[in-house]
C-alpha cells in the first residue's frame, strides 16, 4: 500500500460521505444522478465478489463493505425514502445507462485477464466505473448551475482516480510483475472524462463564481 493508493481510497471515501451528508442534511438529492449511483452499485458488487473468498487485509475488507453498503444506501434513499425521492430530477436524469452496462459487459467478455467468472466480472466493473460518471456529468450540464456539494462530489471522484493512476505508476516502477493494463486504460479514459469538468471547476474556483457548465 503506497501513499497514492491510500490518498485515492480516502478521497473515494470522501465522495461517498459527501453524498450521504448532502442527502442526510438537506433531505434532497436534486442534482444527483440516480443512474450514476446505480452504476456504482453494479461496479462495487461485480468487483467485490471475492469479499468472502479472497481475504487481502482488514482494511481492504472493511473498505469493500463500506463502499457496497453506502452505494446501496444512496440508491435506496433516492428510490425509496419518502422525502428524498421526491427531490430526484427524474425528467432530467435520462441518460440510457443500460447501454453503458451492456457495452462494459461486452468489452469484459472480449478483454479480460482470464476468461473466468470472477475475472470477467472484475473487468466489467473496471470498464463500467470508467463511464459510470457520464449520467451525472450530463445531468450537471443539463441543470446548468451546480450546487457546491455536487460539484465537490464530482471533483473528488476525479481526484480519487488521479491518485490511483499515480499509484499504478509508482507500483510499475517498484514492483517487477506489475501489469494492470485493463486498469491503466480504463483509468485513463475515466480521468479524461473528468478533464473538462476539472477545467470548468478550476475556472469557477479562480473567478470565485458559481460553477457553470456550458449546456
Amino acid at each position: 500500500m503506497n501513499a497514492f493508493r491510500l490518498a485515492g481510497d480516502m478521497t473515494h471515501l470522501i465522495t461517498v460521505l459527501i453524498l450521504l451528508l448532502k442527502i442526510y442534511a438537506t433531505k434532497s438529492c436534486s442534482g444527483i444522478s440516480l443512474k450514476t449511483q446505480e452504476l456504482y452499485v453494479m461496479v462495487f458488487v461485480a468487483r467485490y465478489l471475492d469479499l468472502f473468498t479472497n481475504f487481502i487485509s482488514v482494511y481492504n475488507s472493511v473498505m469493500k463493505v463500506v463502499f457496497v453498503t453506502s452505494s446501496i444506501a444512496i440508491v435506496w434513499c433516492m428510490r425509496i425514502h419518502p422525502l428524498v425521492r421526491r427531490t430526484y430530477d427524474k425528467e432530467q436524469d435520462t441518460f440510457r445507462h443500460y447501454f453503458l452496462v451492456a457495452g462494459s459487459f461486452g468489452l469484459a467478455l472480449l478483454f479480460n485477464e482470464n476468461f473466468t467468472f470472477r475475472e470477467v466480472c472484475w473487468a466489467f466493473s473496471i470498464y463500467l466505473e470508467a463511464v459510470a460518471i457520464l449520467p451525472q456529468l450530463v445531468l450537471l450540464q443539463r441543470s446548468g448551475n451546480v450546487d457546491n456539494l455536487t460539484g465537490q462530489y464530482v471533483f473528488f471522484l476525479g481526484a480519487y482516480r488521479v491518485f490511483y493512476i499515480l499509484n499504478w505508476i509508482y507500483r510499475y516502477f517498484t514492483e517487477k510483475h506489475f501489469s494492470r493494463w485493463i486498469s491503466w486504460i480504463a483509468g485513463l479514459v475515466q480521468t479524461a472524462l473528468y478533464a473538462d469538468f476539472f477545467y470548468y471547476y478550476f475556472i469557477s474556483w479562480k473567478n470565485n463564481s458559481k460553477l457553470q457548465l456550458p449546456a
Binding site: R47, D50, N54, I56, N60, F67, E113, Y164
Partner: peptide, 10 residues
Amino acid sequence: PEKDDKHDEL
C-alpha cells in the same frame, strides 16, 4: 512465487 496479489486494490 509471488503472493497472488490479484486485485489487491479497491
